[in-house]
Simulated scan of single mutants.
Amino acid sequence: MAAPRKATVVLKAVKNITVQFCPFESNVRSTREFLARVASEKARSSNMNCEVITTVKHDKSEPVVDITYVDGERLVMKGAKLTGSEMLAAFQSRCAAKDPQTNTAAKK
């Protein structure tokens, strides 16, 4: 059985990503999976100016991902009720909508 293909994360339209979570809570898995994908070397190489900030707290706080795009728009995802795939899909669809190169390719 083949492993599921992972989509490439492209950070061209992103200014910064702030991820905060308490590692001792049971609901942080999806947030940590999302962080691993956007902080990977391959993803970071798509936009060297994108800041990925991780805040690890020990206060039983809800895991939150706060994304700021280059146009100033923000996307805030609460990871406690989302899967890693859902978070990644929402993030990538918003990035694709903001990337002019992707929009031009889709029209052809």
Rank of each mutant, 00 (worst) to 15 (best):
M1G: 09
M1I: 07
A2E: 07
R5H: 06
K6T: 05
A7N: 12
A7S: 12
T8W: 10
K12A: 05
K12V: 02
A13Y: 04
V14R: 07
K15E: 13
N16H: 04
N16A: 03
I17P: 03
I17D: 06
T18S: 05
V19C: 11
V19T: 03
Q20V: 02
F21C: 01
C22D: 15
P23L: 12
P23N: 11
P23M: 09
F24A: 11
E25Q: 08
S26F: 14
S26I: 15
S26K: 15
N27P: 00
V28P: 04
R29C: 13
T31F: 02
R32L: 10
E33C: 09
E33R: 15
E33T: 09
A36G: 14
R37Q: 11
V38I: 02
A39T: 12
S40P: 04
K42P: 14
R44T: 10
R44P: 07
S46C: 15
N47H: 03
M48E: 14
C50V: 10
V52I: 15
V52C: 13
I53W: 05
T54G: 11
T55C: 12
T55I: 14
K57G: 09
H58V: 10
D59S: 13
S61L: 10
V64K: 00
V65Y: 06
D66T: 05
T68S: 04
Y69F: 15
D71S: 05
D71Q: 11
E73R: 03
R74I: 00
R74T: 08
L75T: 12
K78E: 15
G79S: 08
G79M: 06
K81C: 00
K81I: 02
K81F: 01
K81N: 00
K81Y: 04
L88W: 01
F91E: 07
F91D: 00
S93H: 07
S93R: 03
C95E: 02
C95M: 09
C95Q: 05
C95D: 11
C95W: 08
K98T: 08
K98G: 10
P100R: 00
P100Q: 04
Q101N: 02
Q101G: 01
N103S: 06
N103H: 00
T104Y: 02
T104G: 04
